[in-house]
Nucleic acid binder design. Structure first.
Lengths: 139, 139
DNA sequence: ACATCTTTTGCAACAAAGTTGCATTCTTCC
DNA sequence: GGAAGAATGCAACTTTGTTGCAAAAGATGT
């Protein structure tokens, strides 16, 4: 069962506003990772660009979404699963997949990141893993 | 032994210009990954911003540098090792490390990316792995 | 070394992306 | 419902990245 946007906001101690609800709903509906741009094209009639920037920033800080690295200079965001800590940095232990055909980026929650052994003297905090390829539906 | 910038350019079939040499030298001297911004602060007196953009683009296409994904919306580039193919996309099999103290990003050539098993129906093309933590010198 | 052809560079102008301050509006909580 | 605090919209701005075109510099033949 997918959570409702208002519940997520309440749980994070955020006030419930039309903007936040809409943006969260976009994430819930889409099912894949979204860039600021993606949200803007959907919401720009309703909300100001600045509001979208600030909302994404807030969601990040509260651990509602996490950012996904990419080599194309576009940061995408995806909803965090329940296990994320609710403030600041948090370790997502799943890998991210970017389809080269449909350009969608998704969280593969079922695939966990394998362990790596760093050289002597390095301390590990967080791992990000992004796999490019062709997704299930584009084969 | 570190390669000289002119050799690298010749090997890639690029004409040797002052700008390209300087930018390559910045990479060789720095030893870690650099963002466009980093290069601009060093070279903007000598060269135009646009030249730096185009040079980085050219280097990427020729496989002289590769881009490193990050969650902060800043693409960084690092020199490719010998094993990179000399045109277009190429698979770097090493992981990247970003130090949370000194903010440097480096290639850990000695650590190769472990294998992952994707779910049924997914085809793998390329893997990127970025590890955050504290580096050797910042401990 | 020189002339020629090709490639690269700088400039200007522009487009896109992201940030900040402040007044107004909306939420929350009593 | 009203007061206090938080979020939003607007405007202005900074930063980042792109494009076209003329001038300059590199490569190649002789």
């Amino acid at each position: 069962m997918v959570k409702k946007s208002t519940d997520i906001l309440k749980q994070s101690g955020l006030s419930i506003t039309a903007g936040r609800k809409s943006i969260l709903d976009v994430f819930i509906a889409s099912g894949n990772a979204l860039a600021h741009q993606d949200i803007e094209t959907v919401c720009s009639e309703q909300f100001d660009r600045v509001t979208i920037y600030r909302t994404l920033q807030t969601f990040l800080e509260k651990g509602i979404i996490h950012s996904i690295p990419a080599t194309d200079n576009i940061t995408r965001y995806a909803l965090c699963s329940e296990t994320c800590t609710s403030s600041g940095h948090h370790h997502d232990n799943h890998i991210h997949f970017r389809c080269e055909k449909c350009s969608k980026t998704l969280c593969l929650d079922e695939v966990s990141i394998p362990a790596v052994k760093l050289p002597e003297g390095y301390t590990l905090h967080e791992i990000n893993m992004v796999v490019n390829g062709i997704c299930k539906t584009c084969q």
